[in-house]
Amino acid sequence: MKSISAEEFNHIKDEVLILDVRSAIEYKTLPKIPGSINVEIDELLSNYQNILKDHTSSVIVTVCNAGNRSGQAAEFLNRHGYNAFVLRGGIYGYKHKFKL
């Protein structure tokens, strides 16, 4: 699985598509990365072609709380021809190093 550190991500975050694969409630109530788009993991896995139809050549970084669901999402997207990375440590790891 391709992954990216919080430091690496911080340098490119404005140039990539950030998919937050947490539930809508988590996305609404917990810290989030500015500019991220919330697509729940189940919705992404079942409808990725429609969701990402305008992003076939984009670099995608998937995020969740700690990296488990986003790792599953990135691995799935890479198997389907996308250029996806998981944010190592998730939002909690990122928040620990950079303010949200």
Rank of each mutant, 00 (worst) to 15 (best):
K2D: 11
K2A: 13
S3L: 06
I4R: 00
S5E: 09
E7F: 10
F9D: 00
N10M: 13
N10P: 08
H11Y: 09
H11C: 09
I12G: 09
I12F: 07
K13I: 11
K13F: 06
K13G: 00
E15H: 15
L17Q: 07
L17A: 11
I18A: 07
L19W: 01
L19V: 06
L19E: 00
D20A: 03
D20K: 03
D20N: 10
A24S: 12
I25G: 08
E26G: 10
K28N: 12
L30P: 02
P31T: 12
P31Q: 12
I33V: 14
P34L: 14
S36H: 11
I37C: 08
N38W: 05
N38R: 09
E40T: 10
E40V: 13
I41T: 03
I41F: 07
L44Y: 04
L45K: 14
Y48M: 03
Q49E: 15
L52C: 09
L52G: 06
H55I: 05
T56A: 11
S57P: 01
V59R: 13
I60D: 03
V61K: 01
G67F: 00
S70N: 06
G71P: 03
A73D: 02
A74E: 04
E75W: 06
F76G: 06
R79V: 05
H80V: 04
H80F: 12
G81N: 06
N83H: 14
N83P: 01
A84E: 03
F85S: 00
F85R: 01
R88T: 15
R88I: 09
R88C: 04
G90L: 10
G90M: 08
G90N: 10
I91T: 11
Y92N: 11
G93C: 07
Y94C: 01
K95I: 03
H96V: 05
K97I: 09
F98K: 12
F98M: 10
K99I: 12
